[in-house]
Design a protein around this nucleic acid. Sequence first.
RNA 1: GCCGCUAUGGUGUAAGUGGUUAACACGCCGCCCUCUCAAGGCGGAGAGUACGGGUUCGAGUCCCGUUAGCGGUACCA
Length: 495
Amino acid sequence: TVRVRFAPSPTGYLHLGGARTALFNWLFARKHGGVFILRIEDTDIHRSSQAMVQGILEGLHWLGLDPDEGPFLQSSFVEQHRAAARRLVKEGKAYYDFTPKEQTDDKTVKERIADRARAQEQAGRESNPYRDLPLDEALRRVESGEPAAIRLKVGARGVSRFDDLVYGPQERDYSEIEDLVLIRTDGHPLYNLGVVVDDIEMRITHVIRGQDHLTNTHKQVLLYEALGEPVPQFAHLPLIMAPGREKLSKRKHGEVVSVTTYRNRGFVPDALVNFLALLGWSPGADQEIMSRQELIEKFSLEAVNKSSAVFNFSETDSREWTDPKALWMNGEYLKALPIDELVPLVAGHLKEAGLWRDDYETDKREWLAQTVDLLRARYRTTVDFAQMGRPYFADDFEYEPAAVKKNLKDEKLKDLLRELADRLSAVDDFTHDNSEAALRTYSEERGVKAGLLINGARTALTGQSVGPSMFDIMVTLGRERTVERLRRAVELVGK
RNA sequence: GCCGCUAUGGUGUAAGUGGUUAACACGCCGCCCUCUCAAGGCGGAGAGUACGGGUUCGAGUCCCGUUAGCGGUACCA
């Protein structure tokens, strides 16, 4: 049976790349009736904390990607890692390296690697002197307390091969693979050892992860072979880049990369999942809006793309704070969601903005549902209801200067709005049709275009120049508030 | 430096085993809806498939080279 895992390092929050990796693992597991495991790679102790683990858990939960097993902490398996390394030494497949640990200088990692490579090329790469030290001598030195790292013995000649489910056949000559360190001098197990031992222990069948691990996979294949264990299937996923095809990072790009942001800014989890699924994968047809169930049915690793995808957002235009297509898609979900599912999502934001009233759960429950339904066609996130939608839920709201200038410019509106308010206050059954009839009758009597009154009223009632049909707005606000706001707006005319 | 991966409009993608004027979505622009719009309807612009060779009757699709981007190369993960 299929067993997959998502193995993030706990860097504080779930980022989009991680979320996409988790999603593809989850989809694959669900599709094949398999098991989705969460393992936190927290071996780098300085960079890990419980709070960070919590952040990842919350992100996954919000997305609806709860693990079937776990979370497991890699740090709790270090003894197994050490035991595996010692076993390899005993079997002659790894060795103790007594070379003193190199001093780190102030150069960047990249520079140091390049320097070392160039130096090696000039001097010719010589074999590690400790590689063939007799085992009993090595053990004696270790027992006497001499510090040593453990390295894997990589064959002198040969080629490592594996078949990636996304990138196809991969090969790498042994000469390009150094004897990798398994255990540091201080006894700390390193990443490549840890993943392999844990994946064996958890009986992982398919390793689905970012393409940044592609070339290092050869090292892991070597480890599986040394440990005498079957090699799992590998599937590497194309990376998600920032605009300009640069690396997407929290440091540079801020909170757009954090899943939490999408929750706070009014995304529907399913919409983000749907969008993420399409980053690097396509069902091959024109359909883009897909339910979770459809995603599961259509998903396959073979259809995953090889080229990295650009996550397209603007750092200057706040309307496009994230990928416009993601925003569009969220809008589609807003429109399609059953109103009973949408209202609770909106309620959260209304509460946050201090716009919540207790009777929204009792007497005004139906009114709330209707209002949300009225507004959702033109909103893209659920926070829009509390922000752009404020005039519908509160009496204190801003009049947009541009709207006032556009719709309340005509001095005639001073009288018109006042009298319109009077007329409307006399309408007993304040329905869409009745309020419209009252307004149109009045505009005819006064010989002005209905549009002047309608547009003026829209701005008078909402402070905005755009919104739903004017008479729907009136009905939603009710007669009293409509009349009151029309009168209040008289003083804005001409401003 | 070395090794690897990738390359279709601004972005995400499509185009079974090479075969008519490269398709869809987002975004953009325009028109319509005379009650607005960031909503809806309709339409349009935008790539000849990174570049250069080659194979072929025919190449986005196969081969070679170049370039660019990204990744790896670590006693980081």
